Structures are given as C-alpha cells and as structure tokens.
Lab assay of single mutants.
Amino acid sequence: MATGGRRGAAAAPLLVAVAALLLGAAGHLYPGEVCPGMDIRNNLTRLHELENCSVIEGHLQILLMFKTRPEDFRDLSFPKLIMITDYLLLFRVYGLESLKDLFPNLTVIRGSRLFFNYALVIFEMVHLKELGLYNLMNITRGSVRIEKNNELCYLATIDWSRILDSVEDNYIVLNKDDNEECGDICPGTAKGKTNCPATVINGQFVERCWTHSHCQKVCPTICKSHGCTAEGLCCHSECLGNCSQPDDPTKCVACRNFYLDGRCVETCPPPYYHFQDWRCVNFSFCQDLHHKCKNSRRQGCHQYVIHNNKCIPECPSGYTMNSSNLLCTPCLGPCPKVCHLLEGEKTIDSVTSAQELRGCTVINGSLIINIRGGNNLAAELEANLGLIEEISGYLKIRRSYALVSLSFFRKLRLIRGETLEIGNYSFYALDNQNLRQLWDWSKHNLTITQGKLFFHYNPKLCLSEIHKMEEVSGTKGRQERNDIALKTNGDQASCENELLKFSYIRTSFDKI
C-alpha cells in the first residue's frame, strides 16, 4: 500500500482533458527560462521544448504516446526543470519506465491550478516501474492521483506527508504495488545497510526511497516546507523545498512566496507586481503582455491589467481597466465587458449561442446573426445582446428569417469595421425574408467608422429604411451602385405612401 494514499474509496472516473512563447529569463536562482504550460502528445517531438525550461508557468501534460519505446527515452533528460506552477499529468506514455532521468531536479509542483483537485496525476502508464522524482520536495496545493499503472512499484516507500501538507485526498490505487509483488529495495538494503531515512506512518517504520538508488530526502521537522541542505541544516524561511546553503534567500532552489532578481522575498516591493503567484514583474512586463494579447485571437491570451499590486489576466467583477495605466478602477454604474472572439468572429444561430455573449459591452471581433427560429426570440436576444455598444469588426445579418427588427441591439452605437466582410463591408444584410426595420432612427444613433453597407434580398425592408441608415451611420456616399439592390429590397412591402385627393359631386333626387 502506498504510504499516505487512500484505498478502496469510491472515486469519480478520471477524465483526461485534452506555445513556446518565453516569458522571460528567471535569473540567477533558476538555471534556465520560464516556459508556458505545455500539452505534449502523440510523439516526442515537442518534448524537446523543455530543454531550457527551469519553470513551467502553467501545467505540463505528457500523454497518448503509443509508439514510443524505452530506448526512445534513454537520452532524454531535462535537468534544468525545477518547478511547475500548476500540475504534472502523465497518461498512456508507452515505453517510459521512470522519471528519474527525465526530470531529475523537479523540486516543486505548486498546484496553482489543479487537474480535478490533483497536482500530480500518473494514470495508465503501462510501462512505468517507478516514479523516480527523487528531488520532489513540495506539492504546495492539491493532491496526488496514481492509478492503474500495472508495473509501478516504489510507492509504499514514499512518505507523501513530507511532500504535501495533507495526504487525506491522495488516491493511489490499482498499481502493481497493490499486489505486494514489488519487493522494493532501498539503497544499501541488499548489503544489509540502512542508507535512507525511515519514518513512521500508520504504525509502520519504513525506509523512504524513490528507487533502488535514490533515497527520499527527509528534512528535520523544524525546517517545515522550506527544505534543508545535504547536511540537514534548514533553508531560509522564504525558500521552498530545498537550498544549497542554509538561511540564505539567494540560495533557495525555489521560493515559498515570490522570486525577485535572484532572491526569494515575502512580497513584491514597489515598483514590482505579483505575477502568477510566484514571481515579481515590473510595469513594462505587464504592459507588454497586455499589448501582445490586445489584437491576438490565441486562446488563453489575456490583456493583463494591474489590481491590488498584482498583474492579473482581467479586472475583477465591479472594476474596469483604465487604459492609460492598466489599473483596475471601480465602475460607475454597470461595468464594461470586452469579449474577445477566439477566431475573430462568432455566429449567433440560437439563443444558446447568444447567451455566451451575455453582459458583453464591447465585441472584439465580428458578429454573424443567422437565426431561423426560436421561442420568445426578441426578448431572449435583447437579454443577451442588448448591452453590446461596440463591435470592432463587422455585423452580418444573414438568412435570419425569424427577425423582424434589429432593435434587440438596443445599445449598439459603434461598428468600427477594423475587419470587413469580403474585404469591403462593415454591415452586411443578406436574404432576411421578414426583416422590416433596422432601428427606430428617431431614437437610435449608430456610427460606422469604416467599410460599406450591403443589402440584398431583404424583400420587406424598404429602401427608405436603408437610406436612413446611410445618413445616420455616416456611410452615405461610400456605397457603390450594386451594394444596395434596388429590386430585391422592399419588393414585397408597401414602401411608397402617396396622399390621394378626392373630389365629389353631391346629387339628390331633384338636383344634379
């Protein structure tokens, strides 16, 4: 039985969820670079991206490699990797027998973001014989899940209580170790020597080791999670996991709180800001991140802002960003909400898709409305799209047979046209069989910064309504002859009103 693990408890099935942008060198404390989270699957090609990484700022997932063999891993080693800020997950990587050479110096898994409450997941690794993470000293947050690894031993010899604050939620089941077939031998045991430290858990006094050649490092209890030197002297209180010299914040392997210019500090002093819960960055760093993602459509890219001495992905609820200094300031009234469309555009074809934009005031991208039916549609669209004030790209209304009016965009005031449909149009209306009105132009103002209007096959939309939009939106004169079809717009509506004058002759039985 794995020490510190839980057996036999019912657990939810383990679901495996399925960018080499360097964020800056980590400095003297770390020998390499800070790398983003990685999802490495199918083959070993991307694994080489770990070569210079000291910190993975995010998670590391290595999974679904069915053609790899043990010899493929023999020359692979990433000794610079010290810390993973989120979680480490391995799933069905064939041929991998140990992690001792792959990650010989991995010391800390912070667990800032977890995989279903777990910071370390080893699942269905069919050839893994031992973990071998002999320098792993601290899992700051989260638990361990090690399950269905039929060859995995050296679990009962690990004292997880020396690595985690609590072992109650560890789930370590259905491994070879369960069948008591392992016969784990710690260093020196074969020669009758006791080389590794022994600890007591559940009444068992057991030597602690990761492999037959690597003991588990056990520091004096007084050192807590700070770690200790090879001689057993406690590291500085700002260290986490390990250090090369005692009581020196510049000799830590990793930091308990924050890293700044080669030393570990309790908090980031001005003019620095907390970033990702582990390091200090200056304003320029946060500003660069903001600008890199301002026009990016890459998933996970955030326009970072500053709030409460932190550089964070977005302002919290009730705050909006001051564009001059990136500071989050309290909103006066309802907060603006910028919604970034991942692929640059979004099609609204149902109430469900409209709900995804609920509360958005600025759309960074283009909207395509293609709704053919739905219950209580006008009210639903207004509830979900009615706060949109600005669209950076274009607005396209296409084959939306259920629409009679666009009044559900009740606050839309600006279409920038930074991206144009077919390279020309910022407003595009095609084949809307029941569209009769755009907006009530006596109450609604709309500016279209650039781009043209396109109207074709809107049989109940009168040309007068379209011409009014040209005047109000500032697009009059931009359109070419064929942009607004004269014969297919309003051709099934009563669009022309003329005053009919009647004269009559009164007659009676005795007068003409």
Rank of each mutant, 00 (worst) to 15 (best):
L164H: 11
Y272M: 05
N202H: 03
S112D: 15
L136Y: 00
N179F: 08
P70D: 15
L114M: 15
K310L: 12
H212Q: 09
K224D: 15
C335R: 02
N42Y: 03
H290E: 07
E57L: 06
Y304G: 04
G37D: 14
G142W: 00
L50E: 01
E33K: 05
V173E: 13
K310R: 11
K224G: 12
F116A: 01
D277K: 03
R145Y: 06
C209R: 01
P269V: 08
V206K: 10
I201V: 07
E147D: 03
R113I: 09
R162N: 15
L128A: 06
L152P: 00
L327I: 06
L327V: 15
L50C: 02
H236I: 03
L332A: 03
D277A: 14
L63Y: 03
C182F: 04
I185T: 04
S317W: 00
L76F: 07
K80V: 06
I146K: 00
T189K: 14
K100P: 02
T267S: 08
G232I: 02
K193I: 06
V121K: 00
Q204M: 08
V200N: 06
T229L: 13
L90I: 10
L155C: 05
L102S: 01
C286V: 09
L60A: 02
D159A: 03
N170D: 07
E130G: 09
N195I: 12
A119S: 08
P104N: 00
Q303P: 10
N105K: 08
L60G: 00
D72E: 04
V200K: 02
L155Q: 03
T229Q: 13
F78A: 12
T45F: 09
V108C: 10
I62H: 04
T194C: 14
R141A: 05
D261H: 10
D72A: 08
P104G: 02
S244M: 14
M137T: 04
N282R: 03
S296P: 07
L106Q: 00
D178K: 06
L152R: 01
N175P: 06
C255E: 00
Q299D: 05
D248L: 08
E130P: 00
E180A: 11
H302N: 14
S77A: 03
C264V: 00
A190C: 07
H307Y: 11
T320W: 08
F275S: 06
E181N: 15
H59V: 14
N175L: 08
S296K: 08
N179G: 13
T329L: 11
E151I: 04
I84L: 06
R92F: 02
S225G: 06
L152K: 00
I84K: 00
Y134L: 13
Y304K: 05
I40P: 00
Y171G: 05
C239G: 01
D169G: 11
L90K: 01
R41I: 06
K80S: 11
N105M: 05
R162L: 05
W210P: 01
N149H: 01
C209F: 00
M83Q: 12
G183E: 13
Y273S: 08
G188P: 05
R92L: 03
L96N: 00
E97R: 15
W210V: 02
Q303E: 09
C239T: 01
V281K: 01
K193M: 12
N135M: 15
H212V: 06
K251Y: 12
L50I: 07
K67D: 06
P313Y: 08
I82A: 12
N309C: 06
H236P: 03
K129F: 07
C219E: 02
T199I: 07
F275Y: 05
R279A: 10
R208P: 02
G300H: 06
L128E: 00
I163N: 00
C328S: 00
Y134E: 04
R41G: 15
C234H: 00
G95F: 04
H226Q: 13
C335A: 09
N179R: 14
V167M: 05
I139V: 09
C331M: 04
R298A: 04
H302L: 06
H28I: 06
L99N: 01
E180K: 10
G203R: 08
S323T: 14
G58W: 00
P246Q: 04
L155Y: 03
D39K: 15
H214P: 01
V206G: 09
L155V: 13
S317L: 07
V108D: 00
Y87S: 01
L64K: 04
L50N: 02
T140S: 09
S296A: 13
E147H: 04
G142K: 00
G241N: 03
V144G: 02
P187L: 12
Y87R: 00
S284C: 03
F78L: 10
F275T: 03
E57G: 03
H291Y: 06
I158P: 01
S213D: 15
K310M: 09
K251I: 10
R41W: 04
K217A: 09
L99Q: 00
E33C: 15
K100I: 07
A198R: 13
F258I: 03
T199P: 03
Y134W: 13
N175I: 06
N282C: 05
T85W: 07
S213N: 13
N170K: 06
E57R: 03
L106K: 00
R145K: 08
N42M: 05
L44M: 12
G318S: 10
L326V: 15
V34G: 08
P79Y: 09
H291C: 13
M65R: 03
V265Q: 15
D169T: 05
T107F: 04
C268Q: 00
S323H: 13
H226F: 15
N150M: 05
G300F: 13
P330Y: 08
G232C: 12
S77G: 07
H302C: 06
C311S: 01
E130T: 09
L99R: 00
D75Y: 13
Y304Q: 09
C35S: 00
N322M: 01
D277F: 06
C223V: 00
I40F: 15
C209T: 00
E231T: 08
N105F: 13
G132E: 00
G241Q: 02
V206T: 07
L233K: 11
C215I: 02
T250F: 11
C328M: 01
C234R: 00
L332C: 06
L155S: 04
T211V: 06
S323D: 07
I222N: 12
P336C: 05
D247E: 10
I40V: 15
T211S: 13
R263I: 11
P104I: 02
I158H: 02
G142T: 00
R145I: 02
Y272L: 08
F66W: 05
S161G: 07
P220D: 02
S213K: 13
Q276T: 11
L29T: 10
D159V: 01
N138P: 00
N242L: 09
F116L: 02
H302R: 08
C153I: 00
N242Y: 10
T189I: 13
H290T: 08
V281L: 06
F103D: 00
L174C: 12
F103V: 05
V281M: 04
L131N: 02
Q303I: 04
N195Y: 09
I62R: 01
N195S: 13
V281P: 00
N175M: 03
E124Y: 06
Y259V: 12
M65K: 02
I158A: 02
G192S: 08
E238T: 05
K100N: 13
A156N: 15
V206L: 13
G203C: 04
E180M: 08
E49G: 06
V305A: 07
G300T: 14
P271S: 13
C235L: 02
T211A: 03
G192L: 10
D86L: 01
C264A: 00
P271Y: 12
Y118M: 02
L90C: 15
N295G: 14
S324D: 10
A230L: 05
V93I: 04
G318W: 14
E207W: 15
L29G: 04
V206F: 15
T45Q: 03
